[in-house]
């Protein structure tokens, strides 16, 4: 943690924009995947704030909108691969819902790259690190998001 704060401080001092990402990780897969990335000592950006949720299907659209409303630069929803859901079909419901949220956000002018969904299993620590690294890479050129409906 202290190390992460240190990294951020260095980045801030160098004047580079560090996006804030809110990551909703399913308890059974993606959260375990992020754990694995940690215990495997993989190096990846520390921009994502992980929030463990019981299932990607439990991520209400209001969580996502609220994250943007409260100033997140990017939001990630991550769950088990289709067919691997601990609750059998939670991630199928999530997929449909997230698809709609994504289209709605794009319609009101939020860049498509600010909101992302991924499937990360408990064994895919490297994939989790890659997803976060890619997300940060894509968010940096976009700059700060401000809030929903805020002028830029």
């Amino acid at each position: 943690m202290a190390e992460a704060v240190e990294v951020r401080k260095v980045a801030q001092e160098s004047g580079e924009f560090e996006p804030k990402i809110v990551a909703f990780l399913c308890k059974w897969c993606s959260s375990a995947g992020s754990d694995l990335a940690g215990v495997s000592r993989l190096q990846y950006p520390s921009n994502a704030v992980p929030i463990t949720v019981p299932c990607s299907g439990s991520v209400s659209p209001i969580y996502i909108l609220s994250a943007f409303n409260k100033g997140a630069d990017g939001v990630l929803v991550s769950g088990c691969h289709p067919g691997d859901c601990h609750y059998l079909k939670g991630n199928f419901f999530a997929r449909r819902r997230i698809y709609l949220v994504q289209k709605l956000l794009q319609f009101i002018g939020v860049e498509p790259n600010r909101f992302r969904m991924s499937w990360v299993s408990a064994a895919e620590g490297t994939k989790y690190a890659q997803v976060i690294a890619d997300f940060v890479k894509d968010l940096k050129p976009l700059g700060p998001h401000g809030k929903l409906g805020a002028k830029r």
Partner: peptide, 13 residues
Amino acid sequence: ASESAMYHLVRAM
């Protein structure tokens, strides 16, 4: 604007 956007998006969802 942001809170209103949130209201309208939640209603749309």
